[in-house]
Design a binder for these strands. Sequence first.
DNA 1: TTGAAAGCGCTAACAG
DNA 2: CTGTTAGCGCTTTCAA
Lengths: 347, 347
Amino acid sequence: MEGTNRPAKARRKRVTIVDVAKHAGVSTAAASKVLRNAYGASESMRQRVQASMDELGYRPSRPARGMRGRTFTLGMMVSDIDNPFFSILARGISSVIRPNSYELMITPAGYETGSQADAVDALIDHQMDGLILVAPILSEEHLERVAREIPLAIVGLHSQSPSLDSVSADDSLGSELVVDYLVGLGHRRIGFVARDRDDPDSSRPEMVRLAGFLDAMDRRHLLDEAVVVEGPWSQEGGKEAVRLIDAQDRPPTAVFAGADIVALGMISELWNQGRTVPDTYSLVGFDNSNASSFGPIDLTTVDQSGLEMGQQVARLLLERIGGRTSAVHTLMHPELIPRSTTASPRN
Amino acid sequence: MEGTNRPAKARRKRVTIVDVAKHAGVSTAAASKVLRNAYGASESMRQRVQASMDELGYRPSRPARGMRGRTFTLGMMVSDIDNPFFSILARGISSVIRPNSYELMITPAGYETGSQADAVDALIDHQMDGLILVAPILSEEHLERVAREIPLAIVGLHSQSPSLDSVSADDSLGSELVVDYLVGLGHRRIGFVARDRDDPDSSRPEMVRLAGFLDAMDRRHLLDEAVVVEGPWSQEGGKEAVRLIDAQDRPPTAVFAGADIVALGMISELWNQGRTVPDTYSLVGFDNSNASSFGPIDLTTVDQSGLEMGQQVARLLLERIGGRTSAVHTLMHPELIPRSTTASPRN
DNA sequence: TTGAAAGCGCTAACAG
DNA sequence: CTGTTAGCGCTTTCAA
């Protein structure tokens, strides 16, 4: 069989660095130097080799480069590609790395620790030059271990680790902005939808937002007026939150949903019951997702600029690949976007 | 500098196939055979090597594999990761390839022919074993050229090419379902929002939907009642469509928007004007996107099962990598999802 | 400044 | 059934 049949498809042999070197009449080592803009090549040689590369349409093989040096490719792990925020993030990252001739490879890793760990391993196996993990569900310890193997930057976790870089929104400040705004409107009794009050991992944005909310309420001597309910951060969770808020003895006049998706679920549920916002209570989200200002939906929310966060994390990772060993942890300033789901309380 | 400093980070040396072979007391060739489940290894050796791999935590280097054989990685090109349909597609693909120990790498390529071509090149440079392109904005000719270099499957284009596989919804049937449904409701004058009536590329779903619409109307002797307006397939385009429909001498009693995004833009615009659907006219979308049934939005639309399409395209690509050289073009049956934006005409 | 040559981790002949 | 060996395309010493 093997001997008689041709391969399924006779693919054109690729142009290699050897072809380029031959064409330019230099050694492969020289061609390699030109390719990498490395030190030790005369201007004339540089030009000659460059010309050959262009003429032959040479494109270096990433795997081959990866075996000795860099692949010039960064890996990005996200839980699920279906998230508008990730998309904007990716755009920000690309805008920074493309000019440095880096590529971005994205892998969706699901919402479980196990599948995320596998995805990270796969990225490492592909010899990525560096990794960006978006809101990873991995322990600090696991992240440290990964950082020992490969330059690492994370987005959306308030890390203090000395071995990796991080970029996240100042969620605490975000919560404070919301409380300020609602109190300014005249609200005193304010609800918060927490994802998990007792999550041991205090670095997760969910927890920082909750802590920030409680702090802000405390600072205004309104801690007694803080109504915290618990539900998953999903549309479903929003529906549940509506029920939990309704079940309160003294329901709040405003609710800070913790995330847009929750607020949207709440709006949806309220609508189904023939109730509207802000007539039922004022409602605030967090994320400024696309859906938060679409058609009849016009949700007051907090914006964390995904574009800037993407650009920043890309810069950090490139620096780290470049040799920086100290850690940089950046907090980006969020901004309150007042829209029509908030108003002064009725009574 | 170079000589005195250690590398930025001393990364642990990876376990290689040589280590495994040494540990198991066999040759690297034998270890490789076990790794690849290749023919010619006794059961006892297989077990011994497998045990060593597990014990040492061996993970093969993809680049190294890619240099000689396969990388066991498929590349997926999408225009923008922020598209719910792509996400579902990716899930479908993963569910099929994971059990075959393949990985998926996604790269966002933008909406321009140039940037998409670059992205495809990058994927090829990474030695992917095969490529899945989602609704590529590339000429038939370009696709043929790519297919000559690498196993190729595309989603969302009605291709007839002999050198690549394709999966798409039967958009023509989808349009027919919509016309049937609307006519059944009593509508005769029906509008359609086309993306570009004169696009020369008749394989694009936009064109197939338009042609299918006109065919279906013709078959019912209603061609004179077909009102085709033109606008980009975006929310903005939806707003424009509302104006164009309003400008008609005899406005239609129902509008088939061609895509959910357009229908949603129309709903949004109508709402802003204080008008509602289906009171103004019945409205139908296409895609059954998440947003089509969210909160107060409850759009009649056509569903193309992204999950099944993903599974199918993955199967096709694996087959092709496996050696199939004939082309397979699959049309998936779409389904009409009646919701509350459609009703019988008033007059 | 340039080139020769070794080797990255793996697979694929080919011998034994 | 098993092992030896020669590369894949690139980078990197190390000499010239």
